[in-house]
């Protein structure tokens, strides 16, 4: 299964779902399919599970999505450990496993050898952990994640993008500065939540008791 094809089939489910997207080509694919402002684009490899967890705890009544990779997850297994301990019901953690660090030179990751991330997820206490390797089963897993309490861990086994990257890459994904991207994401969340999200120092100072 190609990740881009799989994402195309589920993007409509995420219309009102803020996402954290890991560093790499998945960024561009996701931003090609929906407005970039609806995602927070991570810079620290592996931080997706942690940023997504903090966000999920902060807005417990809304689903939060994480688009992650095998190299990122194995870099921060701790994020899974904490997710399994805290168990935010609204978290949907999708890991696209291509078994290589594709965006940094295609060296194999640990999942190319003996690591089974489903066993890891189950072992740390994430009860909903599912391996999928067809688009149909991926769509089914994501639909289920929206319908039921999580946290949900979906391990999607995908082909490397390789030289077959869609020609449309980047066409709709306008690049923005990291800090501007952060503000755009927060303003998107304000619209979604219908309340003030962004606070400046004056807001904080005036609220001190």
């Amino acid at each position: 299964m190609k990740r881009f094809d799989a994402l195309k089939k589920v993007v409509h489910l995420f219309n009102e779902t803020p996402c954290c997207v890991t560093v790499g080509a998945v960024w561009v694919e996701w931003d090609t399919l929906r407005p970039a402002d609806q995602s927070f684009h991570l810079k620290t490899l592996g931080s997706g599970s942690s940023v997504g967890l903090g966000m999920a705890m902060a807005i417990p009544n809304r689903k939060v999505g994480i688009l992650d990779g095998d190299g990122a997850v194995t870099m921060n297994i701790n994020g899974l450990v904490t997710t399994g301990r805290v168990r935010p019901k609204n978290l949907i953690h999708m890991v696209f496993d291509n078994k290589i660090y594709e965006s940094s030179g295609s060296i194999p990751t640990a999942t190319a050898y003996n690591v089974d991330l489903i066993k890891v997820a189950l072992g740390v206490g994430i009860k909903s952990a599912r391996r999928v390797n067809t688009i149909e089963s991926f769509v089914d897993a994501v639909e289920n994640a929206f319908k039921t309490d999580g946290p949900h861990f979906i391990l999607a086994e995908v082909e490397p993008v390789g030289a077959g990257a869609p020609a449309t890459y980047g066409a709709n994904a306008k690049r923005v500065d990291d800090v501007e991207g952060k503000y755009r994401f927060m303003r998107y969340l304000e619209t979604l939540e219908g309340r003030k999200i962004y606070e400046d120092a004056i807001d904080v100072k005036q609220s001190l008791r």
Partner: peptide, 26 residues
């Protein structure tokens, strides 16, 4: 206060970032 017990501190920077992005002080 929502307490989130971590297993390694670097996660906490991510957790506080996620909380901030969603309007919580962390």
């Amino acid at each position: 206060i929502t307490h989130i017990p971590l297993s390694r501190e670097e996660e906490g920077v991510g957790v506080c970032t996620g909380a901030y992005l969603a309007g919580r002080r962390a």
